[in-house]
Structures are given as C-alpha cells and as structure tokens.
C-alpha cells in the first residue's frame, strides 16, 4: 500500500474505502458552480515576469563529476547599503568634551 493510498483511505470523505465509490449530491446543493467562478477572486499570487520577456530555459549545461554541493559562480556583491546610509552621530565622551569645551559646556544641563 502506497503512502498516497493510505492517505486517501484515511481522509474524511472517502469512508475509508479504496476503490469505486458512489457519490451523491446533498439535498441542499446549490446551483452548479462554473469552473471559472473564482478566477477573478482576489487571491494573492506570485507575479511572474512578463511572459513575452521570459525566454524558455536554455539547453542543459555539460557538467563534469559533481561535488556534493554545487554552487553558482559567486555573484558581484551588492553595493553596501551602509555606504549610503548617514552615519549616526556620535557624542563625544564627556571627559574629552570637557577637555575641549571646558567644564561648563560639557556638563549635562537640566
């Protein structure tokens, strides 16, 4: 018995039967649903690239004996986001500030 057979047998709706089953419509069945009734439903989905701009997969690449982990050619690292980011302002340590500005200006004022 395959995993799928067990799966079908054990699931609700099949009554544990494998083989021909008879289905019956419930007494309260609504009108038949059109297949495309849900085609316009607002469901999140993956945006594929424009079909006309997407070339089909290329021919298989010739490969030699493969290592356990095959990785692609290292990509050019993305520009460091930190370079464009303004550096946070650093306040001078109070001891140095006192030396530069004098004790009065370096003292925290309430």
């Amino acid at each position: 018995m395959t995993a799928h057979t067990r799966w079908v047998r054990d699931r609700p709706g099949t009554d544990g039967k494998i083989g021909p089953v008879t289905t019956s419509s419930p007494a309260t069945a609504p009108d038949a649903l059109a297949t495309d009734a849900f085609a316009t439903a607002d469901r999140p989905t993956v945006q594929f690239p424009a079909i006309q701009d997407s070339p089909p997969p290329g021919p298989p690449a010739q490969q030699a004996a493969q290592p356990a982990v095959r990785t692609p050619t290292p990509q050019t690292p993305a520009p460091q986001a930190a370079a464009a980011r303004p550096r946070p302002r650093k306040s001078l340590p109070r001891r140095i500030a006192r030396k530069i500005l004098g004790p009065g200006l370096a003292t925290k004022r309430d």
Binding site: T5, G13, V21, A37
Partner: peptide
C-alpha cells in the same frame, strides 16, 4: 457543492474523488 468548493477551495473538497484511488 460543499463549503470548501463554495469558497473556491476545491483542492480540499469535502467530498473529493481521485481517479485511481476512489474509483
């Protein structure tokens, strides 16, 4: 016709059949 189908989720139909398994 079931509640799952009415919601558009026919892949988890409450009275689903699968060729080769249920018939």
């Amino acid at each position: 016709r079931c509640a799952a189908c009415a919601a558009g989720d026919q892949q988890v139909c409450e009275r689903q059949t699968q060729p080769g398994f249920t018939h």
